[in-house]
């Protein structure tokens, strides 16, 4: 088995003729923290949609730990070990943070096991530890709809971790957060990077600078360039995409 956790080969996705992804090639190593940036409409979210099974590729394939993800449904891919955080925080609002985490933490997710099983001691401890990590211990038993935006973001990241995935896909985790909250989330991601492979999609350049080691720039559905933050920022193509040709980046 290769030590690449994720390999994307010649991936194309088209929606009624519009190519959201175009011959995209991408790979990352196990244990890597990768940030993907790109202007609006570059195909960042579609990229995650393909990996998590929400969208089927028109062409090409995505391999996770050497396994082809094609035509696997979302929950199967999730059970393989890929966790996804959405752009807007999506937690179960009517449940408490503890229950939110407990549902994600559950090891046996088929109907019968969930119906008859009780949360094990280790699972209860994992949940308590996670509440500590994401800083929600004091609000563990409030309804999640009462949490602030930033707390919901952290809760959703916690839910991902509770699934104990090998690969975390995090879509714009700091959108709409204050500077302080942004830094909190950044530190949280850096802590998690010690034990997980993580892909982060982000617009906020300050934040990218805080966490990024390796950056991939997407543009019009394919990889424009890859490198460290400094390399990327001085790359003339990237500057052109982000700053020049406003009629294109407006899309």
């Amino acid at each position: 088995m290769s030590d690449k956790i994720l390999e994307i080969e010649n991936l194309s996705v088209s929606f009624e003729g519009f190519k959201a992804l175009n011959q995209l090639n991408f790979s990352m190593d196990t244990g890597e923290l990768r940030v993907i940036i790109g202007p609006n409409g570059a195909g960042k979210t579609t990229f995650l949609d393909v990996i998590t099974g929400k969208v089927q590729p028109t062409e090409g394939r995505a391999l996770f730990k050497g396994k082809n993800l094609r035509s696997k449904s979302e929950h199967k891919i999730s059970r393989l070990g890929i966790g996804r955080k959405f752009q807007t925080p999506r937690v179960y609002l009517k449940l408490t943070p503890r229950e939110n985490l407990d549902l994600s933490c559950n090891r046996h997710k088929n109907v019968l096991a969930t119906l008859l099983g009780r949360p094990s001691k280790t699972e209860q401890r994992t949940v308590a530890g996670l509440l500590e990590t994401i800083g929600l211990s004091t609000k563990a038993d409030l309804s999640a709809e009462l949490l602030s935006h930033g707390e919901k973001q952290r809760l959703e990241i916690g839910m991902l971790v509770a699934q104990s995935p090998d690969l975390l896909l995090v879509d714009e985790p700091v959108a709409g957060l204050t500077d302080e909250e942004t830094e909190n989330v950044g530190n949280l991601l850096l802590t998690l990077a010690a034990s997980h492979s993580i892909i982060v999609i982000e617009h906020d350049m300050e934040f990218v600078r805080q966490i990024a080691r390796q950056v991939t720039v997407l543009h019009q559905g394919s990889v424009l360039c890859e490198g460290t933050m400094d390399e990327v920022q001085t790359n003339p193509q990237v500057i052109e995409v982000y700053l020049g040709q406003p009629e294109e980046s407006d899309a």
Binding site: T52, K54, S73, E74, H75, S78, R79, G83, R84, F86, R90, V91, Y92, L93, K94, L95, E99, D102, L103, S104, N106, K109, N110, V111, T114, L115, G117, R118, P119, M159, Q163
Partner: peptide, 24 residues
């Protein structure tokens, strides 16, 4: 009550999130 009950509420509130959490 218990996990299934919470999961039912979760399905009501956000079914696709439930899928991405690994439940069918």
């Amino acid at each position: 009550s218990g996990r299934v009950g919470k999961l039912l509420v979760a399905i009501r509130d956000d079914e696709s999130r439930v899928r991405f959490s690994g439940y069918d």
